[in-house]
Design a protein around this nucleic acid. Structure first.
Length: 572
DNA sequence: ATCCTGCGCGCG
DNA sequence: AAAGCGCGCGCAGGAT
């Protein structure tokens, strides 16, 4: 059951003296299955991982607090009714935890929540054992008295499992080949320039742009500068967005687009990035669990969730190891089918390609139409070819389309919407309501009205998407939790003749190294790759059953195995 | 000097 | 084919 951890403070001393042996023993005890309950996973788990200890389950009070405070299903609970307090304002703890000053020190970590004096005026008194117990009791009550205890319990378990996985991925890091990355950069940009200078190839392109626009002092990095120069030569552009520039026929455009592309690579993932983020052959992203309103993860530092395709070839497995890259196929429309209990859409997704299934059943003429149409339905698109196929989709899949329409209407009224497991959208802010009121007053001009209308629709698009993206995030959390457990159960494998570069507790074991909304990457000893691929696939099906029970919607995954991430992803 | 905002683009 | 959702980041330029 819950083992409440006395978390005495968020200072370095908290992590210094973890009773590693006690935790390891409790984890190993047959049938014990402790659920470590702590204020913040990042406060405790990094220290345990550094000591080589993996835990199976936890309850992250901070994350659970956030969910339960805002869920419409637990709105009547004491937890939700009380004014904002210490748990609403916990300082962020970095993914690597807090580094202990040294090894000596007493045992601050107890299996029994020892009452601990926080010291006179201790700012972190709210984090001590008794406070954790009080908070846990309030959370369990909020769940038990909620409109759907089973679903909320699953959400909290999944969120906490995600926190464990995120800490583990940070610990393991993404294997990164700096030499290969440098090759990619030199391929595109030429030699590394001196500090502060631009690569020669970018300089050449800049010169071409200046010549073509007859603007010798043009700074290609300055948007106003570029826009002015383009308009001066008579081009009817309103911005410098690539897709708009591509419509235009002028000799300056090609070098300008090429410059922008290289500039992006150079500044976002160039040599400076490599120096800053890759150490000892690993990129260690900091994941922010629940960092997105919809429940998706965010990241901070290094742009972990935006690794461009260009440099993915630098992601290289250790010698004797490979990546298993798994991608959930058309996750969001499948989730929508499950949410809406839409038998016909589930039927279309019975194979491995839901969009192709829509073509095969005669709903739309091409896969591209199916895709753009569904994206439009889920995002609230109103123009172009997306809007053109919408009526056909509405006729074929009335249940799914009605679900997203209802979510949009709720948002337009200023109401909240809720995902399958209970995560609830935020309410629009005060200025949103002000604009609505203003537009309804007698002296409202046309401008105020159209502004209010645009804002109304925008919030409707947000809630429309929230139910789908948010439930997809829940599916993904369950998937991760399943994969994490199954990988551990696979055990380890000898990788002959190679020095272990994978840190404890994952030495010799397949482990997660990357997660991106509907895709995950496992780094595994090569001999276990096929077993990992099978588990990842089965875990996706298991996640579907956790969320949608007997409703027959499939969640196929495409799996690739390779030593290079880029190749595993598009090679197969 | 430092903070903030808008833009554009990378990812899903 | 080209606009609708969610993000993080770097840069330029204005505000402080």
């Amino acid at each position: 059951m819950h083992v409440v951890v006395a978390a005495p403070s968020s200072g370095p001393e908290a992590a210094a003296a973890v009773d590693v042996g006690g935790v390891a023993a409790a984890e190993a005890e047959r049938g014990a299955r402790p659920r470590w309950t702590w204020a913040d996973t990042n406060l405790w788990y990094p220290g345990l991982l550094r000591a080589g200890v993996r835990v199976d389950r936890c309850h992250d009070l901070r994350l659970a607090h956030r969910v339960l405070r805002s869920s419409a299903w637990s709105a009547a609970s004491g937890l939700a009714q009380q004014p904002a307090g210490a748990w609403d304002a916990l300082p962020p703890v970095p993914a690597g935890g807090v580094v202990p000053p040294d090894d000596e020190g007493g045992t601050l970590f107890d299996l029994e929540p020892a009452p601990r004096a926080a010291g006179p005026g201790g700012a972190d008194a709210h984090l001590d054992g008794p406070a954790c117990r009080t908070e846990l009791a309030a959370q369990l009550d909020a769940v038990a008295t909620s409109l759907a205890p089973g679903r909320l319990r699953l959400l909290l378990a999944a969120e906490s499992a995600g926190a464990l996985a995120a800490a583990e991925m940070h610990r393991a890091g993404i294997p990164w080949d700096s030499v290969r990355h440098d090759d990619v950069l030199r391929e595109h940009l030429g030699a590394r320039p001196a500090p502060g200078a631009r690569p020669a190839r970018m300089d050449e392109l800049a010169a071409q742009v200046r010549a073509a626009l007859d603007a010798p002092t043009l700074n290609p990095d300055s948007l106003p500068d570029v826009l002015r120069a383009l308009r001066r030569t008579g081009l009817a552009v309103t911005s410098t967005r690539s897709w708009e520039l591509r419509q235009v026929d002028h000799p300056a455009i090609e070098p300008l687009l090429a410059y922008k592309k290289l500039s992006r690579l150079f500044s976002a993932n160039g040599w400076a990035w490599l120096d800053a983020w890759v150490r000892d052959g690993r990129f260690r992203p900091e994941y922010v669990v629940g960092g997105v309103v919809t429940g998706r993860w965010g990241s901070s530092g290094g742009g972990a969730l935006q690794v461009p395709k260009q440099v993915r070839d630098a992601v290289r497995a250790d010698p004797g190891w490979v990546f298993v890259v798994a991608d959930a196929a058309q996750l969001e429309p499948r989730v929508l089918a499950g949410l809406a209990h839409d038998d016909r859409m589930a039927e279309a997704g019975r194979g491995t390609d839901l969009y192709q299934g829509m073509v095969d059943t005669g709903v739309v003429e091409s896969r591209a139409h199916a895709k753009v149409g569904m994206l439009g339905a889920m995002y609230g698109g109103t123009t172009g070819s997306s809007a053109a196929v919408l009526p056909r989709l509405a006729r074929a899949f009335p249940a799914s389309l009605a679900l997203v329409e209802d979510a949009a209407r709720a948002g337009e009224r200023g109401d909240v919407v809720t995902t399958l497991l209970g995560r609830t959208s935020p309410r629009p802010g005060a200025s949103w309501h002000e604009t609505q009121v203003l537009a309804q007053s007698d002296d409202a001009d046309a401008g105020a009205e159209s502004k209010a209308r645009a804002q109304t629709r925008a919030w409707g698009r947000f809630t429309r998407n929230f139910v789908v993206q948010g439930t997809a995030a829940e599916w993904a959390l369950c998937w991760i939790a399943e994969v994490r457990r199954r990988l551990w159960d696979l055990g380890d494998a000898d990788v002959p003749g190679e020095e272990a570069r994978v840190p404890a507790p994952f030495t010799g074991r397949p482990h997660l190294v990357y997660f991106l909304h509907d895709e995950l990457v496992v780094h595994t000893p090569a001999p276990l790759a096929e077993a990992v691929a099978a588990q990842v696939t089965e875990a996706a099906a298991a996640s579907g059953r956790l969320l949608f029970g007997d409703f027959p919607v499939d969640f196929p995954v495409s799996v690739g195995i390779s030593r290079s991430y880029g190749e595993a992803k598009d090679g197969g």
